[in-house]
Write a protein that binds this DNA or RNA. Structure first.
Lengths: 328, 328
DNA sequence: CCGCCGTAGTGTAACGTTTTACTAAGCAGA
DNA sequence: TCTGCTTAGTAAAACGTTACACTACGGCGG
């Protein structure tokens, strides 16, 4: 690997001058600048990041800490983060905590040791992120706001409202709620958005909370038995919706003929499952890209006010909701 | 951040001694060793990886280069790789090329600049990996063997054979093949395993190749029209199988009543789709873990013979294949 | 002609480790 | 007592950058 010294030696100039060229500093003549660039290219010079890191304290690498890549929301996010980071010359260091707090803690320790310049983090659980305090690095949260930190997420309340509007439009007034964990803000807001949109027109006939991974608790199973009470089941996310549809199918209840179901997230498989799921689409790619952008702002600059960035969501109408005749 | 120097100063010993302690070198008395460790813990000393990297040339970070996290095979793999790497103190730097060769090339450049100690790579496409030559770092391939490189993958041929056995057991002798891209070795071997298992008993009535992403070509669509010819469709992977089932459903053909379908990979959603898909399970977690293990062997040691590591696969019987009465 | 300024460039000290070559002391054997 | 060996520890030179404080020199106003 060629170093600054090699280039300097080859041209009979000092290392400082060569360094100046690459860092776009003044005080180097046009002619020498050209020569240096030419020789550098020819020698395939690449700055040694480790040396730069030691000197400047910046690594041009960021951490991405996720709870679970197996949850289909995250691969798409990770892809977006990695791609926009790379396009800006940033390396992404991945930590997947498998939803275990120790995993998260270990991951942080590793990232700090490697002195990443910042961390994009989707914290697990509702508990406040203790490790953040002594991090001394910019942090951008995804999807789970915490006071005092920058966060980017979707407008979940809006998603809830859109679903409520749609439900009414399709003639559904008696609905069951299969919400996500209410201690996670994003799940809570989805619910709030739906429930508070038309409180007088929509009747919540039952409500159960389950995990975002879609495994149905006995309570949830029991709720699904109460056939005929609700004409529409509003699930906290697509995984939950798909589980519900499966369960109903096992019991010989067909969706959407006998009961309608909506999801949330528009994961890839909503399009592949039968019936195709009507759901709310988040702009996952945009969220990832924005997170990197915010990160970079914070890395290179002065303390910026920690703000929320909220993206609009969109209703994707597919086949899992039936139009009820107005009399019903 | 505390440094070796700080610890040395606090105890009135030399940096060298402190360094020796952490590197497990001899020539440091038991008493001083204890003291140093105690003070280090108290000061929360963490070695500066950048400095270590500069001195030793090793970063204790590895690259993971994948074609597309959106393909459900990869998140699980990435999770396994990250977790076993972390448990061994290795940081994982992610590159997702989005199936674009330029992306792959950019990613490699970035990883080299950061001087990762090795690369775990699932190369895209059939073309030989040109960048490997001047890499000067150990490489472990996943799923796509290349002469001269270590690779870990599943026993695809075995998967094909298992499917053939199962097909016969269920009474299917006329099958249609919806294979993956035959220039990718893993797809090719799945096909070979199936076709060569019982050439005299199983009749391949039609055969079409499509991409692993499951989008059906006009040719594939046409093949699916030829109802009644094949009683079983053997798909190159689960995505393809699921697409086929969807397509058949749209045409009012029910699976498995009218035609049976098998997949390959056992991605998470095979369990959620209707009908639940009968498929071949790869031990993805074990593959990822093994790749890291091989990587570490190669990082720390002398050149080891580049070998294949092949994992057994398993038939997962679900609901997408019907038992034919022997007369049929 | 003097003083001064701006331009182009140099020398070198860091940054936090690891590693090599070295020393000082203690002790056993002769 | 001296030699030589072992143990415990040290000093200092790297590694490849960056950044600060310099110098050398040409030209220009007065």
């Amino acid at each position: 690997m060629a170093t600054l010294k090699d280039i300097a030696a080859a041209l009979g100039v000092s290392v400082a001058t060569v360094s100046n060229v690459f860092n776009g500093r003044p005080n180097v003549g046009c002619a020498t600048r050209q020569k240096i660039l030419r020789v550098a290219k020819q020698m395939e010079y690449r700055p040694n990041r480790a040396a730069q890191a030691m000197r400047t304290g910046r690594t041009r690498a960021i951490g991405l800490v996720l709870p679970d890549l197996t949850n289909p929301f995250f691969p798409e996010l990770a892809q977006a983060v990695e791609n926009t980071a790379r396009s800006r010359g940033l390396l992404v260091c991945l930590v997947d905590s498998q939803s275990r707090p120790e995993g998260e803690a270990d991951g942080f320790a590793l990232l700090m040791q490697h002195a990443v310049d910042g961390i994009i983090w989707c914290p697990l659980g509702p508990r406040p992120p203790a490790q953040l305090k002594n991090l001394a690095r910019p942090v951008v949260l995804i999807d789970r706001p915490r006071p005092g930190y920058a966060v980017v997420h979707s407008n979940y309340r809006m998603g809830g409202r859109l679903l409520a509007q749609y439900a009414l439009r399709m003639g559904h007034t008696r609905v069951g709620l299969l919400s996500g964990p209410q201690n996670i803000e994003s799940a809570h807001q989805r619910r709030e958005g739906f429930v508070k949109a038309f409180p007088r027109s929509i009747d919540i006939v039952w409500e159960v909370c389950v995990g975002f991974d879609g495994v149905l608790t006995p309570e949830a199973l029991a709720a699904l038995e109460q056939r005929g009470r609700a004409t529409l089941i509003v699930a906290g996310n697509d995984l939950i919706a798909i589980s519900a549809i499966r369960r109903l199918a096992e019991q010989g209840v067909s969706v959407p003929e006998e009961v309608s179901v909506t999801g949330f997230d528009n994961i890839r498989w909503t399009d592949i499952v039968t019936p195709r799921l009507t759901t709310i689409a988040q702009p996952v790619g945009a969220i990832g890209a924005k997170a990197v952008e915010l990160m970079q702002e914070r890395m290179s600059g002065e303390k910026i006010a920690s703000r929320r960035t909220i993206f609009d969501v969109e209703l994707i109408e597919r086949d899992s909701v039936r139009q009820l005749n107005s009399g019903s």
